[in-house]
Amino acid sequence: MRMKTIGVTAAAVAATSLAGGAASGREVDSQWYVRLRKPSYQPPRQAFPIVWPLLYGDIALVAADTIDRLADGSHDDTARRFCAALALNLGLNASWSWVFFNRHRLGLAALTAGVLTASSVDLTRRAVAVRQRRAAPLAAYPAWCAFATVLSTHIWWINRH
């Protein structure tokens, strides 16, 4: 894996994390969030700062490995499409926190989570097509996003007015 590529993908996921964190940081303690009804399967607050860095690291590593393999094989168009899919995915990822925590739009957050899940499945599919088993760990990302979609939808449903 090239240092330049991993540096770029790591910077992209770090920017995503910072953007999402800017929206959710203080809001997790806000009265609005505390008062929301949440399903019994809501993970404890401590789970999120463990799960997300692991997923972001996985995204950065698998994406860099995939991009490098495509570049080595002179698959420039496929590499560009993969990078575009990654950029779209990271944009959706960061936007969920803004929609949910900053704008308090629970229904739109559930929809955003669903689109993020579909995007994560697509990103994983693209990486696996190039790197096979080396990209398999990325499957945890769409699995977590699918769980987040169910959770977001349930939160919207039990809090709708």
Rank of each mutant, 00 (worst) to 15 (best):
T112R: 01
R133G: 02
T153P: 02
A12V: 01
A12S: 02
A84D: 07
R69C: 03
V28A: 05
S30Y: 05
R35P: 08
D122P: 00
P44M: 08
D58Y: 03
N93P: 07
L54A: 15
F82M: 04
T66N: 13
A79W: 06
L92C: 09
A10V: 03
P39I: 03
R125N: 15
Y41V: 00
G21N: 12
V128I: 12
A15M: 10
T153M: 05
N89I: 00
C145Y: 11
A118D: 14
V150D: 07
L123Q: 03
D76V: 12
A10H: 05
A22Q: 06
V128W: 10
D65S: 09
T16D: 13
R103W: 13
G21M: 04
V62S: 00
A94P: 13
A146D: 05
C145G: 00
S40R: 13
N93M: 10
T78Y: 08
V150W: 06
I67M: 12
A113H: 13
Q31E: 15
R26F: 05
K4S: 14
A22S: 14
V121S: 12
A140D: 14
Y141C: 11
A10R: 09
S119V: 00
S97Q: 15
A87H: 09
N102V: 02
W157L: 00
I67V: 06
A146W: 06
T9C: 06
T9N: 01
A11L: 15
R134P: 05
G107I: 06
R69F: 08
W98V: 09
A84Y: 04
W98R: 10
P142Q: 03
A19L: 00
F100Q: 02
W156I: 00
G91C: 07
R103H: 14
W32Y: 15
F82P: 00
A15W: 09
S74Q: 08
T78A: 15
N89L: 01
L54V: 14
T78V: 10
V99S: 03
A110M: 09
W156D: 01
R37V: 02
R37T: 09
A139R: 15
R80K: 11
A22W: 14
I67D: 04
G91F: 10
A15Y: 08
V121A: 01
G7M: 02
L36K: 07
A94L: 01
L106M: 02
R69L: 12
S119R: 08
A94F: 11
S119P: 14
I6A: 09
R26P: 03
K4W: 13
V99C: 05
A10S: 15
S40V: 12
T124R: 00
V13Q: 09
N89R: 03
A15Q: 10
V128H: 11
A11F: 05
V34S: 07
G7R: 02
W98K: 10
G73L: 05
N102A: 12
M3E: 10
L151I: 04
D76S: 11
T124G: 04
G20H: 00
A127G: 06
G21Y: 10
V34A: 09
L54N: 15
A63M: 06
L111F: 09
K38G: 01
R81Y: 04
W96K: 05
L92D: 13
H154L: 03
R103Q: 15
G57W: 09
L55A: 08
V121T: 08
A64D: 13
I158C: 10
S97W: 11
D58K: 06
H104S: 00
G25M: 12
A113N: 03
V34N: 06
A140H: 08
R69V: 12
H75V: 03
